[in-house]
Simulated assay, not measured.
Amino acid sequence: MKLFNKESKKNKETRSLPMSKKGKSALTVYSALVLMLCCCTTTAFAASDPLTVINNLSDFIFGLIRAIGMILLGFGVVQIGLSLKSHDPSQRANGFLTLAGGVVITFAKEILTLITG
């Protein structure tokens, strides 16, 4: 059984889809705007102190980690609430573990500064 007929592909014609003059001009303007916004970039100057750059990057990464921890905190609270409603002890244990993990992840920066001094 042949799924693809190679001869029929060779004989097919390709033609462009019809587009009105108004559509062509709108596409041209849109393309020009996208190219101007993407290609016209500004120069980014580095800070004079390299430690400032490292500290800014560290703050950004710990901000992302804090956001993930907050999501886990919320998910843990929802799990605990659902387990209390359904009287499921294993789901309750998972909820408390998720809640505790969310607290640790949320306060990871503070915990690390306490450990390192």
Rank of each mutant, 00 (worst) to 15 (best):
C40G: 02
N56C: 14
T14C: 05
S58A: 11
L82G: 15
A32Y: 07
S8I: 13
L73P: 00
G23N: 15
T28D: 01
P89L: 01
F107M: 01
R92H: 12
L114V: 14
L97Y: 10
C38K: 14
L17D: 00
K85A: 09
S25K: 14
K22A: 13
L97K: 09
G101K: 06
G74I: 11
R92Q: 00
L35P: 02
T52H: 06
I65Y: 00
T116W: 01
G101I: 01
N5I: 01
L73M: 14
M36Q: 09
N11W: 02
M1V: 12
S86R: 15
K22Q: 03
E110L: 02
G63D: 02
A93C: 04
A46D: 15
V34D: 11
Q91V: 03
I61F: 14
N94M: 12
N94W: 09
F75H: 13
I111F: 14
V104M: 09
T52Y: 09
G23Y: 08
L17M: 12
D59I: 00
E7T: 13
I105P: 05
K6S: 05
A46T: 03
T14I: 07
L73E: 05
L35S: 04
L64N: 05
A100F: 11
D49L: 01
S83R: 12
T41V: 14
L57M: 09
S31Y: 08
N5H: 10
L64A: 05
D59R: 01
T41S: 12
D88Y: 04
K24R: 11
G101R: 05
T14A: 04
V103A: 04
P50M: 05
S25F: 14
K2N: 06
C38T: 14
A26R: 04
L64Q: 10
F45H: 10
S8A: 07
T113Q: 10
G102T: 01
M1A: 12
C38R: 10
L57D: 15
F45I: 02
E13L: 15
L99V: 06
A32M: 03
T116Y: 07
N55A: 03
I105Y: 00
S83Q: 11
M19A: 10
V29T: 03
K9I: 13
G81D: 02
L97S: 03
E110P: 03
L33G: 01
K24V: 03
L97N: 04
C40P: 00
R92G: 12
A67W: 15
A47N: 10
M19I: 01
I65F: 02
L35N: 11
N55K: 06
C39V: 03
T113S: 08
I65K: 06
D49A: 14
T41G: 11
T42Q: 05
K21G: 05
